[in-house]
Design a protein around this nucleic acid. Structure first.
Lengths: 126, 126
DNA sequence: CTGTATCCAAGGAGATACTG
DNA sequence: CAGTATCTCCTTGGATACAG
């Protein structure tokens, strides 16, 4: 969610680290993933998101939505009724991103036990 | 790099968001990606990393290394010589993670122009 | 309903100095 | 060489109140 893309990570990997951090920057922030998941399934209203992401504040939800919209990952549609109705939906680009992220999910689940064991070992060794 | 894995993102996607944020947590932080890239190519010494990741402070490099080591993504080997010699190398698990991350890199490069355009459009629309 | 504006707390990260 | 210890700044995120 950071607007900053300094990419000061040296020349590691000939700019690969840079692209990578760029991609990760889009889904950084505590709520971006959740918003992406919800809006990938179809148009969702502000209040629906607020309910789905239990614990999110209005402020952070708004900031997250604006960030994703700005990057072209979300389309915001306003229906000028009263009360107002606003819908958010993921773009094709966002769906592609999400597909890649699913690979990470698989990795996380496959290695959850390994990681837990590594942590225990490390912590016990003080 | 955060030790915290509260995963408070509602029940979005039946825990998928949770696994995902877990995986992303391992590579969060400004220097994790760079360290992962360097140590994936083979054993590297502390000072070599310090040079490769230009701009990193000793403190942050140490914290990053400790975090990755704790999660079982890095192995730290100390050779008890004088002066001391310490080498870090990525584990198999880390290499798998890195492979998944390469997918994200490809996405970032393929859509760099789209994102830039989206940003310009958004910013111009105030 | 869908936000914006303010204030505040916690953690990430840099600079610097010191050590086995 | 390979760290640790402080101190401080800045960003992220939560709480709350207000508005079109």
């Amino acid at each position: 969610m950071s607007q900053r893309n300094e990419c000061v990570t040296g020349d590691v990997g000939g700019g690969e680290a840079c692209s990578l951090m760029e991609a990760l920057g889009r889904v950084s922030g505590k709520w971006s993933i959740g918003v992406l998941m919800e809006t990938t399934r179809g148009p969702v209203r502000f209040t629906e998101l607020e309910r789905a992401l239990s614990g999110v504040s209005r402020r952070m939800l708004t900031l997250t939505l604006r960030g994703l919209e700005r990057d072209g990952l979300l389309v915001r549609t306003v229906y000028p009724t009263v009360p107002p109705r606003v819908e958010y939906v993921a773009t094709e680009m966002a769906r592609e991103l999400y597909d890649h992220l699913l690979g990470l999910t698989e990795w996380a689940e496959r290695h959850r036990a390994d990681i837990a064991r590594a942590r225990d070992a490390y912590d016990n060794a003080t």
